[in-house]
Design a protein around this nucleic acid. Structure first.
Length: 423
RNA sequence: GGAGAGAUGCCUGAGUGGCCGAAAGGAACAGUUUGCUAAACUGUCGUACUGGCAACGGUACCGAGGGUUCGAAUCCCUCUCUCUCCGCCA
């Protein structure tokens, strides 16, 4: 959520930035500024009345004590009208604030100046490419066929017990999952992230804090009886740890990581591109999150991007890094890098990580601030990234490292799998 | 699931209608003292909005939301959460 005062002071800049995200609703901005002015005027009015009422109440107290009942009664009678007035004004303020809030959450975050204009994924900017595509024979198999051939993943069983998009991992397939999770967590710990194990269901306030609610609720599974949502990413519980918190400046940066399953309804996504592991309703992911000082956040975004790239390099996967264009970025992000690995048998890039700087967009909603001895309380910056999402990594490993004799597991995973070959 | 108790500032904890934005202690920060460490002493020590160039003010907030009252941390109602006991249970 953007800060109203910032919008007020930098209106033309805000409009210019928002246009990069293809957002051009000048009228909405004007309405927001109008509502904020109205709110302030009402606020001032009600506070003046309250100050008067407070003084009157004190006088009554003193007069009563002095035994001057009659005089007290006179003052009492005058406050009745004032009270009614205050009540009305408060109701107006509350209504205005709600209206303002509802409109304010419609504004996406301002993209960083380096974000390219564009509407479609094709307009994302390739920042760098790393590694070479493996030379696979013409008859190389896509991962879903490999998964069946080596009895690693059973998609049909998942359909039976739950539905499409909930695979059952078996044998070495299951072990590979566990190995990847442990490898990613170990690497995150080496990079200084403190590990957390988190609730997989969150309440409404948390969904709002990170921006899934109100507008993207269709993306989450919802337990209506208890009013809880299944997390679409560990970002939600981790970042909400710091909701309504004022952290000490010296405790920054806060670095957390956590492994969780993620649940996404993905309503309306069907077809060839979602085959196999390409898009699931439940998948596993290790997430990294940082809470940092504003002046450091872009430096840290690079650091997080490098952490993710190191993982991909250790896994010997060919990858590329994209700087997302305005149209492809998420609502809340100011700058996002997507990491994609090459899926050699499908012959396409698969997104395996997304690393974003949200600047104060989330912290403003979360009321996540920091305070130093010298500095006043101010909003912190939040960042997060997948490090990494498992299914597409598994897809790429199966496809890229397939041989006549089986699938060769990357060296770095062997300590975690206990085997080098899937056959 | 049943019964009871509670929720106050960074922490502990006092406060049952006006003198309470809130005692006291601890922690933290600054200073004085000190050969060093410790101790002692003094001061500072919540958040948000808002007025003012500033000095300094105003308003709200004692789990959340309503109500009673001229006046509520204090009384009433609803909700949430925590704790204790019983039941059930991985």
């Amino acid at each position: 959520m953007l800060q109203v005062n910032y919008i007020k002071e930098n209106k033309s800049l805000v409009l210019e930035r928002l246009s990069v995200k293809n957002f051009n609703d000048l009228q909405l901005i004007d309405e927001i500024l109008g509502l904020d002015d109205a709110r302030k005027t009402l606020q001032l009015e009600v506070e003046t009345l309250q100050a008067d009422a407070n003084t009157a109440a004190k006088q009554v107290g003193e007069l009563m004590k002095a035994g001057k009942r009659d005089e007290a009664e006179i003052i009492k009678s005058t406050t009745v009208a004032v009270k009614e007035n205050i009540k009305n004004l408060l109701a107006q303020i509350s209504f205005t604030e709600q209206d303002l809030q509802q409109k304010l959450v419609l504004l996406p975050n301002l993209p960083h100046t380096s974000v390219p204009k564009g509407k479609t994924p094709e307009e994302n900017e390739v920042v760098l490419s790393f590694g070479d595509a493996p030379n696979l024979p013409e008859n190389a198999l896509p991962h879903w066929e490999l998964a069946a051939k080596y009895n690693l993943i059973d998609f049909e069983l998942g359909v039976k017990i739950t539905g499409a998009g909930f695979p059952v991992y078996k044998g070495k397939g299951a072990k590979l999952q566990r190995a990847l999770i442990n490898f990613f967590l170990a690497e995150a710990e080496k990079s200084g992230y403190d590990e957390l194990m988190l609730p997989l269901l969150v309440n409404e306030a948390s969904g709002f804090g990170t921006g899934q609610l109100p507008d993207k609720e269709g993306q989450m599974y919802f337990c209506g009886v208890d009013n809880l949502y299944l997390i679409p990413t560990a970002e939600v519980p981790i970042t909400n740890l710091y909701r309504d918190v004022i952290v000490k400046e010296e405790d920054l940066p806060i670095k957390n990581c956590g492994y969780t399953p993620c649940f996404r309804r993905e309503a309306g996504s069907y077809g060839a591109h979602v085959r196999g592991l390409n898009r699931l309703h439940q998948f596993d992911k290790v997430e990294i999150v940082q809470v940092v000082k504003p002046e450091k956040s872009y430096e840290i975004l690079e650091e997080m991007s490098i952490h993710v790239q190191n993982l991909l390099q250790k896994l010997d996967l060919q990858y590329r890094v994209l700087r997302l264009c305005g149209g492809d970025m998420s609502f809340a992000s100011a700058l996002t890098y997507d990491m994609e690995v090459w899926s050699a048998a499908q012959k396409r890039w698969l997104e395996v990580s997304s690393v974003s700087n949200f600047e104060t967009f989330q912290s403003n909603r979360l009321k996540l601030r920091y305070k130093g001895n010298e500095t006043k309380t101010q909003l912190a910056h939040t960042l997060n990234g997948s490090a990494l999402a498992l299914p597409r990594i598994v897809a790429a490993i199966l496809e890229n490292f397939q041989t006549e004799n089986g699938i060769i597991v990357p060296e770095c995973l062997v300590p975690y799998t206990g085997f080098r070959l899937i056959d």
